[in-house]
Design a protein around this nucleic acid. Structure first.
Length: 878
RNA sequence: AGGCAGUUAGCUCAGUUUGGGAGAGCAUUUCCCCUACAAGGAAGUGGUCGCAGGUUCGAUCCCUGCACUGCCUACCA
């Protein structure tokens, strides 16, 4: 074995092994319980980032854990076509060559995207393989695969025939850059500082009187069809139903009252532009106002006076401001900060406009999706996301599902050329129109929102679209857990639940694990534009895949964002190396490799340290099992780190070395425990760091490492309490002597003598039995026991637990240093004593605190006082 | 505007299930290459647990208010 763990070689070896041998191929096995996960399919927009790494590692760890527990596990890989996002990227690439999609035409453009798809999906799946993800590659799915298309059509047709999907002319969100409609959640709100213009609207009857309207969008006055005020606003009560004149165009509109108007904001009166504002649209619908369209799909002005016609919005805005100003319509202009909707894919401003789109009525689906969570059929980890989830569903409006782009699932709707016939939903082009029998039908050109197919993902991957092939669906569905970031909770998770309840009459998954976002060490989101992206591939190369995985798991506290930096990968890498070297130590001492696959029955505990480490292993197993089951993977990582490094390596292996040295005839038994502990703890941690653990299992020839369930471990443990007390005693003795040696500056190669003063028979026997550990670890040549030792002048001394230990190291002693050292001890003891004393002098404490607490305090005080007495006595003699 | 989180060592964060003299990693200081490991070992320094009240014998932990930070949601013209 090499001295340093060669992660590059070992990572490569194992991921290839897993993929080539189809280690994680899942087959239906009715004797076993299924445990299935569908991957949140990454968009084919590029390569995987740290957020994906976190997401997939969590899934992989959970799956590997369940696998050890004996479940029949399945994890389905896949990628998402990513609608607008993907089309935008491919268009951008075209633009570099000075081309647009129109230059290529529909078919050629789609061909380009398919080419892009094959490149990026290859890149993505390769990354997943390298990360060690135990996905079943034979089931890899793309959201535009045949089976997914079928599922989409099946779902759409059912919804359409049930009257839940309808085509309507409504106010929607329009992105000029992407040239498509967007659903409400596809907007990102950004703060913007703009002007607030206060404009005079003159009253028709009172020539010089006017009402002042504050607006951020003066260019929309052409679309005004009313002025609205709050019905209980005393300032405007008498103006209700009066007529005002819209500036510039001199159009007559009415002042109406509506509760939606907030009288405390601005002037308390708003201009109602129903064609281009959500609130105004609602007011208009309620009050039967006209709805005017003044901006078209290209962002140009229409239905406006000639000088403005065909201007872009910003041009029209400039012009109207100038014109209003020239004619003295402004009262004042203020700076104003507000939020504006932007496109979540291209970040450009979103305009509300009237458009004919396809909508999905979600009201009954939402109610069911709320009930199922309220009834705890689906659990959230952490729970804190339940409230936002329910609140969102409660306020949900109909979902605009049509997109005016080329890339995606075409809406399976067919129109007869006879325009009076109703559209038909169908899998294939209908042979004839069911209404008029016409033979020419044309398919809708719009495609579906990419999230429509995503919402079907948990069952479309199991061939839901094909009625005759649903064995997998019956066995593996519903899936067991869904692991996702909170940023797509509404966009995706809520919709999967809605669709699953509707189409499958079942939940899509039992548990939802919601993790945070991976940020840089300053808490900033990683993004290419800031340049703070840490690429998982580079980390894997530099520190190893296990180090990447361990670092992510170690810091992924449930429900919180995580910050990562290179230091974390370094310390994880060091931990992996530590495991490697502990293994190396064991292998160097192993003469007989036949006993490697033994179980715990063969283990013989020779002394308390064996009992102690076995007990600790049992505790570790119990605690990590619980943590895994609650998906607290960070706790697993922390528990194992502590056990392995501190307890196993720092203490137990050091003790074992001495045992081997002292009792060569027992070496095989000692090695047996070492191998057993190593093997067990590596099994526990193997879901997190599968590469090194696989390698070690191979080295120690453990062939059933992944099939036996370590989490059922029940070891026989004797007199637990005494063991712990004794372990602490000996550790305390060793630590105190180490400290003393350091302080007095006695080189480690200088052997010293210890004298225990006035210790009881039990302790004496104990130390006598275990003196070798003390001797070799802190280099002691002899240990003596004395009673009422008198002649201690020039000796140093320490108190470990209740043992008083003298060290005759005369020539090293510096009296002043020694005095300082002891005085320091005294000071801390004094603090302790006074604290306990005031507590015990408090009559209320004695009356009301529990007996256990009082006794604990008394014991503390007593122990401190004894220590203090001993130190003071010795200080005198010094 | 509302909702939800967070505020603990120089930095990144645990912990508080059931209230009783605060933990880890990194950084830093000191000593050590003694045959698993210097990517290591041993030891040390470092905290009125955001602020103010309340409940309690006792609060970092429970309650209320406030401040700051972050996120989510929203129709503030």
């Amino acid at each position: 074995m090499k001295k340093v763990y060669d992660h590059n070689q070992i990572d490569e070896k194992w991921y290839k092994f897993w993929v080539n041998n189809k280690t994680y191929k899942a087959k239906i096995d009715k004797k076993k319980k299924a445990f299935s996960i569908v991957i949140p399919p990454p968009n084919i927009t590029g390569s995987l980032h740290m957020g994906h790494a976190l997401n997939v590692t969590l899934q992989d760890v959970i799956l590997r854990f369940k696998r050890i527990q004996g479940y029949n596990t399945l994890w389905i890989p896949g990628v998402d076509h990513g609608g607008i996002a993907t089309q935008n990227i491919v268009e951008k690439n075209l633009k570099r060559n000075g081309q647009t999609k129109l230059d290529l035409g529909y078919d050629n453009f789609l061909e380009k995207i398919w080419l892009w798809k094959s490149e990026t999906s290859y890149k993505i799946t390769n990354q997943l393989k390298k990360m060690g993800c135990c996905l079943d590659w034979d089931r890899e799915t793309f959201t535009m695969d045949e089976k997914c298309s079928k599922a989409v059509k099946k779902a759409f047709i059912k919804l359409f025939n049930n009257g839940l999907i309808y085509k309507g002319k409504k106010l929607i969100n329009w992105c000029f850059k992407c040239g498509t409609a967007l659903s409400d959640i596809e907007l990102e709100y950004k703060k913007e500082i703009t002007k607030l213009w206060y404009i005079k609207y003159f009253l028709q009857d009172m020539k010089n009187d006017y009402i002042t309207i504050a607006t951020t969008r003066p260019e929309t006055i052409f679309g005004d069809t009313a002025i609205a005020v709050s019905p209980n606003d005393n300032r405007y009560k008498k103006l209700i139903n009066k007529i005002v004149i819209v500036p510039i165009i001199n159009k007559k509109i009415k002042i109406i009252a509506d509760y939606k108007v907030d009288k405390t904001f601005g002037t308390g009166a708003i201009k109602v532009t129903p064609g281009h504002d959500v609130l105004d649209n609602e007011i208009a619908l309620k009050n039967n106002l006209d709805i005017l369209e003044i901006i078209n799909n290209d962002g140009k002005m229409i239905n406006v006076p000639i000088p403005y016609t065909n201007l872009y919005i910003h041009e029209a805005k400039e012009k109207i401001i100038k014109d209003l100003n020239d004619k003295n319509y402004f009262i004042k202009i203020e700076d104003y900060e507000h939020s504006i909707g932007t496109c979540y894919r291209c970040s450009s401003k979103i305009e509300s406009l009237i458009s004919e789109q396809w909508f999905l009525n979600v009201s009954s689906m939402s109610k069911k999706a709320i009930t199922i969570v309220n009834n705890k059929k689906i659990s959230f980890y952490p729970k804190s996301w339940i409230k936002p989830y329910i609140l969102w569903l409660k306020n949900l409006k109909d979902w605009c599902i049509s997109r005016q782009i080329w890339w995606g699932h075409k809406i399976p709707i067919y129109y007869c050329i006879n325009k009076t016939c109703p559209p038909v939903a169908s899998f294939e082009t209908p042979i004839q129109c069911p209404k008029c029998g016409g033979k020419i039908l044309k398919q809708e050109t719009d495609v579906l929102d990419t999230w429509f197919s995503s919402a079907l993902w948990p069952f479309s991957v199991f061939n839901w679209g094909n009625n005759n092939n649903d064995k997998d669906l019956k066995y593996f569905y519903p899936t067991s857990v869904l692991v996702t970031g909170y940023e797509i909770l509404y966009l995706w998770v809520a919709r999967m639940i809605q669709f699953s309840l509707l189409f499958m009459n079942n939940i899509p998954f039992k548990d939802i694990i919601i993790h945070g976002i991976v940020r840089d060490k300053y808490g900033k989101k990683m993004s290419k534009s800031i340049g703070n992206v840490i690429d998982p591939i580079i980390i894997m190369k530099e520190y190893g895949t296990d180090a990447l995985r361990f670092a992510l798991m170690h810091s992924a506290v449930q429900g919180r964002d995580i910050r990562i930096s290179n230091e974390m990968f370094i310390s994880s890498r060091n931990f992996i190396n530590k495991i490697w070297n502990a293994t190396r130590f064991i292998m160097l001492n192993l003469s007989n490799t036949n006993f490697i696959n033994v179980n715990s029955n063969y283990i013989k505990c020779y002394d308390i340290f064996d009992e102690w480490i076995i007990t600790e292993l049992q505790n570790l197993t119990n605690r990590t099992k619980k943590a895994y089951e609650n998906y607290n993977i960070d706790i697993v990582a922390k528990e194992v780190y502590d056990f392995f490094w501190t307890k196993f390596c720092n203490w137990y292996i050091e003790f074992a070395k001495i045992k081997i040295f002292t009792f060569p005839e027992k070496k095989e038994d000692i090695m047996l425990i070492l191998v057993y502990i190593l093997n067990s703890v590596l099994k526990i941690i193997s879901p997190i760091i599968p590469f090194i653990t696989s390698e070690v299992f191979q080295i120690i020839k453990n062939s059933n490492a992944f099939t036996s369930n370590i989490f059922k471990l029940k070891l026989k443990i004797s007199n637990n309490n005494i063991t712990y007390e004794q372990i602490h005693k000996i550790q305390d003795i060793i630590t105190k002597i180490r400290m003393l040696r350091l302080e007095i500056n006695i080189a480690s190669n200088v052997s010293i003598e210890l004298i225990f003063n006035n210790i009881n028979e039990r302790d004496k026997n104990f130390i006598e039995n275990n003196k070798n550990y003390i001797k070799y670890i802190v280099n002691v040549n002899s240990i003596k026991f004395e009673k009422n030792i008198k002649n201690i002048k020039g000796m140093s001394f320490v108190i470990a637990g209740d043992c008083e230990i003298f060290l005759p190291i005369y020539k090293y002693i510096d009296i002043n240093k020694e005095k300082n050292r002891l005085n320091k001890n005294i000071r801390s003891l004094q603090k302790e004593i006074s604290l306990s004393k005031t507590k015990l002098q408090n009559s209320n404490f004695l009356r009301k605190a529990s007996k256990l607490e009082i006794n604990k305090t008394k014991e503390k005080l007593y122990a401190a006082q004894i220590k203090m007495k001993k130190i003071i006595n010795n200080l005198k003699i010094l």
